Amino acid sequence: MGGGRRVLAVVGVLAVALSGCAAEFSGRAANGHAAGRAEEDGSIPDNGSIALSEVGHAAIRKLDPDLLAAVRKAAEDARAAGVELRVTSGWRSKPYQQRLLDDAVTRYGSLAEARRLVSTPETSKHVVGQAIDIGPTDAADWLVRNGAEYGLCQTYANEMWHFELSTTPGGQCPVPRSDASG
């Protein structure tokens, strides 16, 4: 197996392991919320994902229009290939982002470890609607392999589900940063 394939295989295995963490953070933060609360802060329901067609949900409605258009086009093409892209996180309010970070600090025991997976409200691209998390794993994998065609790139090597508009459609994606801490 070549070096590039080995890296992708390792990233894929890591992503499968970590995708449960991201869904757990989203689900835990949404637990106990009234239906309107998720509308306010971008929390995803307990089932862990929503469809791109749920335009009334703040996680979708408050995304950057260019990002949303690119993801919708990618979703059409993925669907034609037999893959359904689901949104596991989109736009988030600052308080919701802070809850995710606080949960990660509790889970991992330190802010430094938590920051590898969760950005602060001041630095999170989710808070400004410029990032989207895609699931399930086969959908994220499809987008890792095909996203540059739409300008969508995996931002962090340890989060195969996290995408941002990081190139022009058909361009080359930058090498993902190791994690969200830097």
Rank of each mutant, 00 (worst) to 15 (best):
G2A: 13
G4Q: 08
G4K: 05
R5Q: 13
R6M: 10
R6V: 06
V7T: 10
A9P: 08
V10D: 13
V11S: 09
V11L: 11
L14H: 06
A15G: 15
V16I: 08
V16R: 09
L18I: 05
S19Q: 15
S19K: 07
G20W: 10
A22R: 11
A23C: 10
A23F: 01
F25S: 07
R28N: 11
A29K: 09
R37C: 13
A38F: 03
A38H: 11
E39N: 07
E39H: 04
D41E: 13
D41H: 10
G42N: 06
G42Y: 06
S43H: 01
S43D: 03
S43L: 00
N47G: 14
N47S: 14
I50R: 06
I50F: 01
A51H: 13
S53D: 15
H57F: 01
A59I: 06
A59C: 12
L63E: 06
D64G: 02
D64H: 03
P65H: 00
P65C: 00
A69C: 07
A70L: 04
V71P: 10
R72T: 12
R72W: 09
R72V: 10
A75T: 07
E76K: 14
A78N: 12
A78V: 06
A80C: 11
G82I: 00
G82V: 01
V83P: 15
V83W: 11
E84H: 12
R86Q: 14
T88A: 07
T88V: 10
G90W: 00
W91R: 05
R92Y: 07
R92S: 11
K94V: 00
P95F: 07
Q97F: 04
Q98E: 13
Q98W: 02
R99V: 04
L100D: 12
D102Q: 13
V105P: 05
Y108L: 03
A112Q: 12
A112H: 04
E113M: 06
A114L: 09
R116I: 01
R116D: 02
L117W: 00
T120F: 04
P121G: 03
T123W: 00
H126V: 03
G129K: 01
Q130S: 15
Q130G: 14
A131Y: 06
A131C: 09
I132V: 15
D133S: 05
I134S: 10
I134W: 04
T137D: 15
D138F: 01
A139G: 14
A139P: 12
A139M: 10
W142I: 05
L143P: 12
R145G: 08
N146M: 13
N146E: 14
A148G: 09
E149S: 13
Y150K: 04
Y150H: 05
G151K: 02
C153T: 03
C153H: 04
E159I: 00
H162G: 00
E164T: 14
L165W: 00
L165F: 01
S166L: 14
T167V: 05
P169D: 11
G170F: 04
G170L: 04
P174S: 09
S178Y: 01
S178R: 07
D179S: 04
D179C: 01
D179V: 01
A180S: 15
G182R: 11
